[in-house]
């Protein structure tokens, strides 16, 4: 990934140089996670080794483990159709996982669109593009309501017509052509119109998983916040920069934990911080140096 070369200023300072692994660890792990999940679906059609069948909408892993997107099942229920138990069980497993681990962990560790929008954000920083108009970050919740309304009004899974998340993942596994225009559109939108526009402001799928992750266990914290030298690297690289301040600068909270459910737990702030302010931890870890 070209993302691996991301560095934003901060060659200054006399902290001991950190290794590539220290600087890119979480990014590498995330890309590996996204890639491995994709490969689990592709090993069957490519090499005849079936690990996971289907796609992120619904899948069957090793012939026994059903996994279904709970948002899709919710829409199906809204249309008035009751799915078979395998879809319901699959949705319950996914729901439980993200409730427990972290809702938007889906966004940064699983979703393939994340790679596209990360690339757009990286290009935007690199090219110094400052133009554009960013929609309100709450738009995604309206869109989430809108897609449920559309499902109820039309009696079909109307959102699935254009849903870039399922479109891209399905396309990567089953082949795509027309869907590429939507993905290219998202890239151009994030690059030219709105910084982090899609994932951070519009995507109703991310909004749904964000709502799931309100009380999730896996959190990024800033235990070493005393060491912060205000270089702003973490703000520049964070896909949801507003989540950092409460933890880092004690705004409205004492806890060093980043508790906002918008946080995708991508760990990029941990990577870029030369002062090693951040770390990955759990919800109950209140330690602060």
């Amino acid at each position: 990934m070209s993302m691996a070369t991301t560095t934003v200023s901060s060659a200054s300072g006399c902290a001991p140089a950190r290794s590539l692994w220290q600087r890119q660890r979480w990014l590498i792990l995330r890309r590996a996670s996204q890639l491995l999940i994709l490969l689990a679906f592709l090993s069957g059609p490519w090499f005849g080794v079936w690990i996971a069948k289907g796609n992120l909408s619904s899948s069957l892993t090793l012939g026994v483990l059903p996994l279904t997107d709970p948002l899709l099942v919710l829409q199906t229920l809204v249309t008035g159709h009751l799915p078979y138990s395998s879809a319901l069980i699959g949705a319950a497993i996914v729901l439980g996982f993200y409730l427990l681990i972290g809702g938007r962990v889906f966004c940064s560790w699983v979703c393939p669109v994340n790679v596209v929008t990360d690339a757009a954000a990286w290009s935007r920083r690199r090219l110094g593009i400052k133009t554009g108009r960013v929609p309100d970050a709450n738009t995604r919740y309206w869109l989430l309501g809108g897609l449920l309304l559309a499902a109820a009004a039309t009696g079909t899974l109307a959102w699935e017509w254009v849903n870039p998340v399922s479109l891209l993942h399905r396309g990567l596994i089953f082949g795509m052509s027309g869907g590429l225009f939507v993905i290219a559109g998202i890239f151009m939108y994030d690059l030219l119109v709105a910084s982090r526009g899609w994932c951070g402001h519009l995507c109703p799928v991310g909004a749904f998983y964000g709502l799931l992750g309100k009380k999730a266990l896996l959190r990024v914290a800033a235990p070493n916040r005393k060491a912060c030298d205000d270089c702003m690297d973490c703000f520049a690289v964070c896909p949801e920069p507003q989540v950092i301040r409460p933890a880092l600068k004690k705004v409205g909270q004492e806890s060093p934990l980043i508790l906002a459910s918008d946080c995708t737990t991508c760990g990029r702030c941990i990577d870029v911080c030369d002062k090693q302010v951040f770390k990955m931890t759990h919800r109950f870890d209140q330690r602060s140096e």
Partner: peptide, 11 residues
């Protein structure tokens, strides 16, 4: 009804 029920998983 199909368009309400099918989640487009490709199974």
């Amino acid at each position: 009804d199909f368009l309400a029920a099918c989640v487009r998983c490709g199974l």
